[in-house]
Computed example of a mutant assay.
Amino acid sequence: MRKILLTVCSIFLFLGCEKNDTSDEYSATELTGQWVSTTIIEDVPLGHIWGNGECLYAVGGALGVNINEHLGTILKKTNGEWVVEKADFDARLVLLGIAGVSCNEIYAVGRIADGLDSGILLKFNGLVWEEIRGNINFTKIKVINGIVYITTWDGLYKIESDELVKIYDSNDFIVTDVWGIQSKLFIVGYNLDKDYIMKFDGTSWSAMLEEDKLQGNYLDHIEGISENEIYATGTGGNVLKYDGASWETLISGLLPVGGFKIYESKEFYIATSRYLTGNKIYKYNIELNELTTVFEADIPFYGLWGSIDIGIYALGLNGTIVHNDIIR
């Protein structure tokens, strides 16, 4: 049943900074506040983005019904323009995630249309994209403390010497995201009946949610500021917060969440993903406990990324990228 649930979802997707010494002082990481929407490739839903001050990549695709349409795409921003880095795949696929250790070591994961157990893992070595296919259903990829982690339908993996090594075996739920700090890891996921948040303390795994508490969130995202301040959210439209002692509902009643990102430890951004209409990008001020709408759109958003090097980027249907750059 859990494979059927995620398959349906996949089809629709598919340091402190010093003040600058000018008359108008601002933080070197302050955002412009202007959200710009650009359509890159109309037929390709975009699912995730990763980058730093030196490179920026986006991925997408769709498991479309037309067997002649191979929409799997990797985009790269070059000289201010988005160009197709790779789209010559020989199968229908959707790329669900991308993350890098550096601009010369980047990984992307996705699913191929040919069967339920058909995943794809790509690695960019600075020159070319290498491709590995297997029977693992990937959901997301993250780099934490220089280590590449991949979440899947059956657990959590990390990459060691170009090999996938399973470090958590999930028999009961789909693992959808991972976040970590120092030697600790946190994962989220769900099945048809309940949500899961698991913690690895450096030695063993333990459950963080009580059996009958905070269910129905369909958790897809987890990220924190410290091990005592962590946030999780998903298609249930709620944002949960961990304060070092317990998880509680911080925000409720949103549309399904398609993207979540903490920016500079003082605010986080949420992008919603209801099909076609009424979607928004929100900014939440952590100190003021204030949620505001910063952008509205008639497309669903499938990914959100931000860093102090590039600003905030959201991706969605029709090859759309919405961004708010840092002031330069």
Rank of each mutant, 00 (worst) to 15 (best):
A28F: 03
F260S: 10
E267K: 15
I321N: 09
K213T: 11
F301K: 05
L116A: 13
N104R: 00
K280D: 05
I326N: 01
Y149G: 03
S118C: 07
G61E: 02
N285I: 06
V84K: 07
K158P: 00
L214P: 12
L192S: 12
E42K: 14
D193V: 10
L15H: 05
N79E: 15
L5C: 02
H70Q: 12
I181Q: 13
E130P: 02
G253W: 06
A99G: 03
I4Y: 06
N324K: 14
I74T: 08
D309P: 03
Y149L: 05
L6M: 13
T73L: 07
V148I: 13
G110S: 09
I167K: 11
T277K: 06
L116P: 10
F173I: 07
G146H: 00
S161F: 02
F173H: 15
L288F: 10
I67F: 14
D43I: 09
L31W: 11
I262F: 05
D243N: 15
I187S: 02
G258L: 09
L192I: 14
D88V: 02
A245Y: 11
I286K: 12
K86I: 00
V128L: 09
L95E: 07
D325A: 15
W153S: 13
E287F: 09
N145W: 01
G224K: 04
T320H: 04
V188M: 06
I167M: 08
E163H: 04
G146S: 02
G97K: 03
K283A: 10
S161H: 07
V8G: 01
A314M: 11
P300M: 01
K77W: 03
W179S: 12
A232Q: 03
E264S: 15
G202C: 08
T38R: 12
I187Q: 00
V44L: 04
V65R: 06
N318L: 10
E105A: 00
E160V: 13
L276M: 10
H221M: 11
I197N: 01
G216W: 05
E130A: 13
W82D: 06
T272C: 09
K241T: 10
I141E: 00
G319S: 05
M198S: 09
T73V: 15
